[in-house]
Amino acid sequence: MVAFIWAFLIIVGVVFSLLSGNVISLNDTILTSANSGLKMMMDLLPIIVLWTGIMKIAEDSGMLNKISKFLYPLLSKLFPCVPKDNPALGYIASNIAANAMGLGSAATPFGLKAMNELQKINLQKDTATEPMITFLILNTSGVTIVPTTTIALRLMHGSVNPESIIITSLIATFCSSFAGLVLDYFIRRKNNGI
């Protein structure tokens, strides 16, 4: 599936550039894109290393387990196949909390760790499991309470009330997360033949 997206982006991009006579800028893009990829990694690397370090303390001290247990009644509804004291639940909770606070870059390491923990209890290593998909739907529908970047940009452009979009974002986020989870729920039910 990822291969399909990748092929689509490249084939459409190259063919369309050739047809519209955009060859020079296409060349530049191809040559510089490896560099942009590295730059992105350089931005991400220190944050990932720092936060996986910090979170390891929380894991070793048993704090993450406590969070998992505390949130279990709620999370067990969404992730019925994940055992009660699995650290994945703690990482999922941390990821969603960090996203909600608008700390997108701090959320990524937690999300990667959550996927890693879910993969440990996956029996078919090349296939996504139900909890992975549910988690990513929750993650990509963007449960954001404080969209920090957007507010900062609005402020920069002289908005009279930069925070006014918090409430609209919240309602829209709620709709998209809810719709995503409902669809996921029905697909799961259909797949399990209930």
Binding site: M1, V2, A3, I5, W6, T108, G111, L112, M115, N116, L118, Q119, N122, K125, D126, T127, A128, M132, I133, L136, I137, N139, T140, S141, G180, L183, D184, I187
Partner: peptide
């Protein structure tokens, strides 16, 4: 996000994750 998270654990069959997202 899907590409990043799934490739970090080498999962290639992502089932309904994409169109659901």
């Amino acid at each position: 996000v899907l590409a990043l998270y799934f490739s970090s654990i080498k999962v290639t069959k992502i089932k309904h994750a994409l169109y659901n997202g």
